[in-house]
């Protein structure tokens, strides 16, 4: 292998700006998508626990569609197909928006991840022993109170690891949005690589960004888990 390293070029114009913009896009996109995905996911997850078979079907339908079509295909559909299905004036309005790729990426990532969050919510709630429901009902709590005071606070603690790993998944998945023209950090790395042929340096920047964020999130979540830890219950995940 014959390769001369030149790390300092990463700090030169315009590469340093590409990196900054890439990082900003990745972080913005992931945080916003995570927030939307959590909201929709909790909604869909709760719908799937309802008694009404119609609501349950809607929830299941959503989850199966959005988790079984690869994210890249979903992004393409939002990017190439969705605008074509809009009525003419809406389509014109959509195309004249600033940052269509970013918006498309946001929709695609959020809806895809919401399906996964909904599954986590459901399995979190079903993991609560039936005896807990019986105990709550036996003291006269109604269904709403039982969820409000017993099921959700408990399920939330069980689900912290899953929810944080969903954030890391979104964060990594956001790299796929380079295919529809979002200049996130992996995209920035490929631009630098094709401009300078310095792949190792360029990809190292991207990799280190992901690894640094992953490590920070893991450390923060471990702290949060410890903070919310129920005394006496040890090592129970």
């Amino acid at each position: 292998m014959n390769y001369e390293f030149n790390w300092s070029m990463l700090l030169e114009e315009p590469y340093i700006d590409w990196i900054k913009e890439g990082l900003l896009n990745t972080v913005q996109l992931s945080l916003m998508a995570w927030f939307i995905a959590l909201t929709i996911g909790i909604l869909i997850g709760s719908i799937r626990m309802m008694k009404s078979p119609v609501l349950r079907f809607i929830g299941t339908f959503y989850v199966e569609i959005f988790r079984n079509i690869p994210l890249l295909v979903q992004l393409f559909i939002w990017f190439f197909v969705f605008p074509l299905l809009l009525p003419d004036d809406l389509m014109r309005a959509w195309n004249s928006l600033d940052g269509v790729p970013f918006l498309t990426a946001l929709i695609g990532l959020s809806l895809f991840t919401a399906a996964r969050v909904a599954e986590q919510i459901r399995s979190g709630i079903t993991s609560i022993p039936k005896g807990q429901f019986n105990a709550a009902f036996s003291t006269g709590l109604n269904t709403f109170q039982t969820y409000r005071f017993i099921v959700i606070p408990y399920a939330f603690r069980i689900m912290i690891p899953a929810i944080s790993s969903e954030f890391l998944t979104i964060f990594k998945n956001s790299a796929l949005t380079l295919t529809i023209g979002v200049a996130e950090i992996t995209a920035a790395a490929t631009y630098i690589e094709s401009d300078t042929f310095r792949g190792i340096e360029a990809y190292s920047v991207a990799s280190l960004s992901y690894m640094f964020t992953t490590a920070s999130v893991v450390i923060f979540m471990t702290w949060l888990e410890n903070f919310l830890r129920i005394p006496g219950l040890i090592g129970k995940k």
């Binding site: 990594k172 790299a175 796929l176 792949g199």
Partner: peptide
């Protein structure tokens, strides 16, 4: 902790 697509780029280059 890395996205698959980035790993693919790494290997494509390396």
């Amino acid at each position: 902790s890395n996205p698959l697509i980035l790993i693919v780029f790494w290997f494509f280059f390396l």
